[in-house]
Design a protein around this nucleic acid. Structure first.
Lengths: 202, 202
DNA sequence: TTTTTTGTTCTCTATTTGTTCTATAGTATA
DNA sequence: TATACTATAGAACAAATAGAGAACAAAAAA
């Protein structure tokens, strides 16, 4: 359903100013803010916005005007735990309280996965840049040329290409200005393998 | 049905300027914007565009001029139409049969969007590589530094940084080994702006 | 409880704006 | 020349939109 001019004005006002009120405004207060003298007229506009699915129904409650969250329909979508920045490391105990992030099914596997946010430019030549989300399959081993989340000396976490030669593990950045890292294998713990990546513009 | 010259002018104006109005213009306002003095004449043109399937029917509503949303068909909550490779261009007739692809809500806008698959390395320095999916908001104008889907001479389609200087449009690759392209603005048609990106490993 | 605030419904009026119609004029084509 | 198509102006009408204000009922506060 399309909004009329006045309805758009009012919705835009609510979008931008609703959070500036201490509590949601009454119809009279809205009238005053928008230069309308009739409460009944304002009520008609608000009701139209409710019918259009843009506001929650007030159902008689005083000061019951609320914006409807358009994207809240992601309730039943496939979500994974977002565990924060890669540099911060992964306290796996905190998965329970982790914020969920929506991930399309083709960017994950059917094994347990989680999401991290990339910090830094060490994988820039692989098209993974600062701020990207990466979807990681939670596992503890990898093959050559996998991109892995590696925990070094129980401290530092990073995203690198994986290679194992005998008792040495090489972690290759994808950045011409950085050198590969080499560790004894017992110092490196694999915390997962990269299976997907997402980026938001705007 | 073919459009007359005037109808094409008006449709092009609506494509590029409709979203610059706070709310859709009335016929009188359209007349003023396009230098026409008769509301009745404008109505006839708009009606022709409705009959041609390019605009939604106004059906008596005030300010009822809307571009027809080509993507409204199979709008599964979390899916967008996947229209194939970027190089292939966008045959908008084939949208009906387009395969749906799952896209998380935070990688799209609440305007009509579609998905393309990237071919080639022209945006590699922006972290967009061959085989990536890109989510494009369907619109017809852009700002400097937006990454756009541009149709050149009704033939070639590509993904580039957008810049407009007077009557010239510059399309900048993100690849040190490629040169920017420069065209007269009427040769370039914007088909959308990049709002999200996804990549699958494995 | 009583009082005040505030949402709801209603009627009436005015303004805005889409729709239809007639008339005029330019241009291309048979 | 006659005909068809396109474009424009402007008048008249009808529908959609917006607002005011009264009366009432539900909710919240005292």
């Amino acid at each position: 359903m399309n909004l009329t001019k006045r309805q758009q004005e009012i919705y835009h006002f609510l979008e931008t100013h609703l959070n500036q009120f201490e509590y949601p405004p009454s119809l009279d207060e809205l009238c005053h803010a928008l230069g309308v003298r009739s409460r009944g007229s304002m009520h008609k506009h608000i009701q139209a916005l409710v019918d259009a699915g843009l506001l929650e129904p007030m159902s008689g409650k005083q000061r019951g005007i609320r914006l409807k969250n358009i994207f809240s329909s992601s309730e039943d979508a496939h979500c994974l735990p977002f565990l924060g920045d890669i540099a911060a490391g992964i306290p796996f105990e905190a998965i329970e309280n982790a914020e969920p992030i929506e991930v399309p099914s083709h960017l994950r596997t059917n094994k347990p996965c989680y999401v991290l946010r990339v910090k830094g430019d060490s994988m820039i030549d692989a098209g993974i840049i600062d701020g990207d989300w990466v979807i990681i399959e939670h596992c503890h081993q990898a093959q050559k040329n996998d991109i892995v989340v590696a925990l070094i000396d129980q401290q530092e976490v990073s995203l690198k290409y994986f290679e194992q030669k005998h008792e040495k593990i090489f972690l290759h950045p994808a950045n011409a200005s950085m050198m590969p890292l080499c560790y004894d294998s017992q110092r490196v713990q694999i915390q997962g393998v990269l299976v997907g990546q997402m980026r938001q513009y705007r």
